[in-house]
């Protein structure tokens, strides 16, 4: 018997609990995704979940859809081929921050530019979790990682700004604390056609947390609660008060014809 919405979509032949560390935010993002899929009323045979490599990319293992765990950074390129082959399939791509905008950054900007109809969920824990906490392109300046022991001297990427600039039709950010908003944004992205990005901020107690004195899972969520501010409030916030804080909410929601729809038209026009 199904216990609840989330349990309904978990693979019966997988062992639970999952491999994620106690209190890792990844589990919360996965359940938000499942609730959003359920709300959208998708037939699970017509849903694919594609990931790269990393803790976050273990998501497909657990969910009862057509699932592919690809190579590090390349999920979007695999998903692009799948979408071309199966235009009617809802293709969800889950990636870690390192996966999506580090090693996979090139695929990210080009999938966005092309407007491939892919539903991206980036699990952003600001670090390479699986390999033990190396700095990622989203590790904030000054924060610590095993490869940035003295504090990160690099600038970090804003994934939502990047998605916006490269042409995504829907861009939103929430956190593992703000679960209801997260589910709402993923649900909205599933209802859109085109390249959508939901950046889900997640806490990684084991590496990022340990190195940056937010060791307890609860502390990670409190941090999110205190530091992420809804866009409307953020816009009114004076510059000096924005320091150390981040906006969340829906940043882009526009309509643009996606690549595959255009290609199908091209076939129609040139068929022999």
């Amino acid at each position: 018997m199904e216990k609840n919405v989330v349990h309904k979509y978990l693979r019966k032949n997988k062992k639970f609990p999952h491999i994620w560390c106690p209190g890792c935010g990844h589990g919360v993002i996965m359940s938000s995704m499942l609730r959003a899929i359920d709300k959208q009323g998708l037939d699970r045979d017509d849903v694919a979940v594609v990931s790269g490599i990393g803790c976050s990319s273990r998501t497909p293992t657990y969910v009862d859809f057509n699932t592919i765990h690809t190579t590090h950074g390349r999920a979007l390129a695999f998903a692009t081929g799948l979408k071309l082959a199966k235009p009617d399939m809802t293709v969800i791509v889950v990636m870690g921050d390192g996966d999506a905008v580090g090693i996979g950054g090139n695929h990210f900007i080009h999938a966005a530019r092309r407007n491939m109809d892919l539903k991206v969920i980036v699990y952003n824990n600001n670090i390479y979790g699986m390999t033990g906490g190396q700095a990622s392109p989203t590790t904030p300046s000054g924060k610590k990682a095993t490869t940035a022991r003295y504090g990160n001297i690099e600038r970090s990427f804003d994934i939502c700004e990047l998605a916006k600039a490269t042409g995504a039709v829907y861009v939103a950010r929430s956190t593992s604390y703000h679960v209801q908003a997260l589910e709402k944004y993923i649900h909205r992205s599933l209802s859109k056609k085109g390249f959508t990005v939901v950046e889900a901020m997640t806490h990684c107690p084991t590496t990022y947390g340990r190195l940056n004195k937010i060791k307890e899972p609860v502390a990670g969520m409190i941090y999110q609660k205190d530091h992420f501010i809804m866009k409307a409030a953020w816009d009114k916030l004076p510059e000096e008060k924005r320091e150390g804080k981040f906006p969340m909410g829906e940043f882009v929601d526009i309509e643009k014809t996606d690549f595959v729809s255009k290609y199908l038209r091209l076939i129609e026009a040139n068929k022999e």
């Binding site: 390129a77 081929g81 071309l84 082959a85 199966k86 090139n106 695929h107």
Partner: peptide, 22 residues
């Protein structure tokens, strides 16, 4: 269907994805 991917890593990945799609 033809697609020009951004690089050869992507080309290889996308043909695998397409093959999985049948």
């Amino acid at each position: 269907k033809f697609i020009q991917m951004e690089d050869e890593i992507g080309s290889m990945a996308s043909i695998i994805g397409a093959s999985i799609g049948g």
